[in-house]
């Protein structure tokens, strides 16, 4: 079971359909079993039972999740596949000690892959949809996998399948989520 975590400003918010809904649709179409929980409500038993976690994005002005770093500390010991999308990447990086720096991108931009990784399935570059005010400073030991001309677009833990993507793969790059699902299958 994949645990999809909603990082929006409150449970069942007006942003949920925009940032969680498209991820749910992709998982449903791929036939994946999943459950959605708001980050405040995700309990230890659900996290324990999850084969993988997807941390969804938030609206540009929605940074409430950064005020609750304790709600993401479990990521340090999770050790199964994680995909952090935009704000989700920020939460993942923060849990591992990575900070942020201002980097504003909205709309389609070019992403260049720096290090081959199964997540990118041989792609060297692609266009991606961005919606963020900040980029992450790569946590110590993490590998920067891809960049735009302004900031790091993808990171991975040095030994575990923990990924952060700054772009929104659910918009025009659904393959990245499908590829993540393949990694989850492989890890099981």
């Amino acid at each position: 079971m994949i645990l999809v975590i909603d990082l929006c400003y409150r449970n069942d918010s007006l942003s949920r359909a925009e940032f969680v809904g498209p991820v749910e649709r992709i998982l449903r179409e791929a036939g994946a079993e999943f459950a959605v929980r708001h980050y405040i409500a995700a309990g230890a038993p659900e996290i324990e039972a999850a084969d993988a976690v997807i941390l969804c994005g938030t609206a540009l002005k929605d940074t409430g999740f950064t005020e609750h770093p304790e709600m993401f500390r479990w990521l340090l010991a999770f050790e199964r596949p994680v995909l952090g999308i935009s704000s989700g990447m920020r939460a993942l990086a923060a849990a591992f000690g990575g900070g942020t720096e201002p980097c504003y991108e909205i709309g389609m931009i070019d992403v260049q892959v720096l290090a081959p990784d199964p997540l990118f399935a041989g792609r060297e570059g692609f266009r991606a949809y961005e919606l963020h005010e900040s980029a992450v400073r790569v946590p110590e030991g993490f590998i920067p996998l891809a960049v735009s001309d302004r900031c790091v677009q993808a990171i991975r833990h040095p030994s575990l399948p923990l990924y952060g993507l700054l772009f929104h793969p659910e918009v025009r790059n659904e393959w990245a989520i499908e590829q993540f699902l393949r990694l989850v299958e492989t890890a099981q």
């Binding site: 359909a17 925009e18 498209p22 609206a59 540009l60 709309g107 389609m108 919606l131 918009v171």
Partner: peptide
Amino acid sequence: VYQATRVQRICRELDLWCFNPLWHA
């Protein structure tokens, strides 16, 4: 994406929240 990108940018300039409840529904 054309429409959403432009509205998102204007909202940012005006410091407004932006909601798209049908986005990629």
